[in-house]
């Protein structure tokens, strides 16, 4: 599985990680997905599109190695090779950080296209970490995408914003504007899912969210302490010690590459008879 992708020409697949709403786990998911793809042997680069609010570098743990950024490359101040940061854990993983200072107008359609084309010639997967909102940065992140991962929490504002973003993906992107092009393949990644709260009727179920958004499910990431722990130390969650969240990400990543993986909701622990009788204090 891992070696077969290496010999052929790179896949050059552009995947945008988007959501509309902020704080739902876009950057965490971008880091996990890119690291997971690289771990499977795919040559992967992850790009931070959140100009002015650079954060992917911290989640990836390479914040002290940023010299040149995405905007420097667009404006011709640096070569792409100079701006790409090679991950220290995985041979096949690269990070393209964004600018901390310049304004988002620096992102031009032509500039982004040129960089993506250069990356496509070398990488299997190009993961675009979108900023929150539906402004320029988010539009640029999704415009050239082949696939979209819409990160959604089982919560009303997040689902509403995801619906908005799905509308934009099917109308405001290159694939949408090109006659005869296959539409962007959009999938939902449900994050911060809490099975116990779903069981007690205080959180929407996976089925509820899918029924509303009407797009396929990529995976369900349970609410997990491992996420904060991993971000504290700058390690993508799939490279940290195994947890319910990391296993759920691994499954989602396998589905992204076309492998059939049974959908199981991790972190689901049915209370046993003992617990039911004597409480769940433990």
């Amino acid at each position: 599985m891992t070696s077969e992708a290496k010999k052929d020409a790179p896949l050059g697949r552009v995947i945008v990680i988007t959501s509309g709403k902020g704080g739902v786990g876009k950057t965490t998911s971008s880091a996990a997905i890119s690291a997971g793809l690289a771990k499977q042997g795919f040559k992967t680069v992850v790009i931070d599109f959140d100009v002015g609010l650079r954060n992917l570098d911290m989640i990836m743990g390479c914040e002290r190695r940023v010299v040149f950024d995405f905007i420097n490359v667009i404006q011709g101040d640096a070569k792409l090779k100079q701006a790409l940061i090679k991950d220290k854990r995985l041979e096949t993983l690269f990070i393209l950080p964004t600018s901390q200072t310049r304004d988002k107008d620096a992102l031009t359609k032509e500039g982004v296209e040129q960089i993506l084309n250069e990356l496509k010639a070398e990488f299997d997967y190009i993961v675009c970490d979108s900023p929150a909102g539906i402004e320029r940065g988010a539009q640029m992140a999704m415009y050239y995408a082949d696939e979209a991962v819409v990160v959604t929490n089982p919560e009303v504002s997040s689902v509403r914003d995801s619906d908005r973003v799905l509308g934009l993906l099917s109308s405001q992107t290159k694939r949408a504007e090109t006659d005869g092009a296959e539409p962007i393949k959009a999938q939902v990644l449900l994050t911060r899912y809490d099975q116990a709260r779903v069981d007690s009727g205080e959180m929407m179920t996976v089925e509820d969210v899918l029924e509303i958004l009407a797009v396929p499910l990529l995976g369900v990431i349970p609410e997990s302490k491992a996420i904060l722990k991993a971000s504290n130390v700058g390690t993508p969650v799939v490279l940290d010690e195994p947890s319910a969240a990391s296993r759920a990400y691994e499954d989602a990543i396998s589905r992204l590459t076309g492998t059939q993986v049974e959908m199981r909701i991790q972190g689901e622990r049915r209370p046993g008879l003992f617990q039911r009788l004597f409480g769940r204090a433990t």
Partner: peptide, 20 residues
């Protein structure tokens, strides 16, 4: 317990039908 998840779903469905 109050099934607030159902309320969330119903509200979203009505709202999104309108917004779409």
């Amino acid at each position: 317990p109050a099934q607030s998840a159902q309320t969330a779903k119903d509200r979203l469905q009505i709202l999104l039908a309108h917004e779409r």
